[in-house]
Simulated scan of single mutants.
Amino acid sequence: MDDARPWIYGTDHDDPDPRTPTPGHVYVQLVGGHLDGQLIDVTGYTPEECTEGGALLMSNHGLYGPGGRSDYEPRPGDPDRWDWAGDAP
C-alpha cells in the first residue's frame, strides 16, 4: 500500500492503520535522522516541553542499534517540527 500520510511514531506493529492521527490529539513532525517524516503525539506535553523539551525516542536503526534512542528537539520558531539532534544509547 502506497500511502503519502506520515507514520505515527509509537503505533503498534499490528495496528491496522498506523498513519491515522487520533482526533483531538496534537502531533509534531520529526525532521531528519532515522524517524524522519514520522509524527509524534504531544497531546500530554506542556507548552514548555513542546518548545524547549523534546524527546529521546526508541529507534532500532540508529548508531546504537536495538535499544538505542534518537534525540529530537523542538525547532525554534516552528512548533510543528522537531529536529534530530543525534543518537543516544
Score class of each variant (00 low, 15 high):
residue 16 P to F: 09
residue 34 H to E: 15
residue 39 L to W: 15
residue 60 N to Y: 09
residue 52 E to P: 00
residue 19 R to I: 01
residue 14 D to Y: 10
residue 50 C to W: 00
residue 64 Y to L: 09
residue 64 Y to E: 07
residue 36 D to F: 01
residue 55 A to F: 05
residue 1 M to D: 10
residue 11 T to Y: 11
residue 79 P to C: 02
residue 8 I to F: 08
residue 32 G to T: 06
residue 11 T to R: 15
residue 85 A to W: 11
residue 14 D to F: 08
residue 29 Q to C: 03
residue 68 G to I: 05
residue 81 R to E: 13
residue 61 H to A: 14
residue 19 R to E: 04
residue 76 P to K: 08
residue 57 L to I: 10
residue 2 D to C: 03
residue 40 I to G: 01
residue 67 G to L: 09
residue 33 G to R: 02
residue 12 D to W: 13
residue 87 D to E: 08
residue 88 A to E: 12
residue 76 P to I: 04
residue 67 G to F: 07
residue 14 D to E: 14
residue 42 V to Y: 08
residue 88 A to R: 14
residue 45 Y to T: 03
residue 54 G to N: 00
residue 77 G to V: 05
residue 29 Q to P: 00
residue 81 R to S: 06
residue 19 R to P: 00
residue 6 P to G: 06
residue 23 P to E: 15
residue 35 L to Y: 02
residue 68 G to S: 13
residue 8 I to C: 06
residue 57 L to D: 02
residue 32 G to Q: 08
residue 12 D to I: 02
residue 24 G to T: 02
residue 40 I to W: 04
residue 12 D to Y: 11
residue 18 P to N: 05
residue 79 P to D: 15
residue 69 R to S: 04
residue 43 T to P: 07
residue 75 R to E: 13
residue 25 H to C: 03
residue 34 H to P: 02
residue 48 E to S: 14
residue 78 D to N: 13
residue 45 Y to M: 12
residue 24 G to Y: 09
residue 21 P to I: 07
residue 88 A to S: 13
residue 72 Y to T: 01
residue 52 E to H: 12
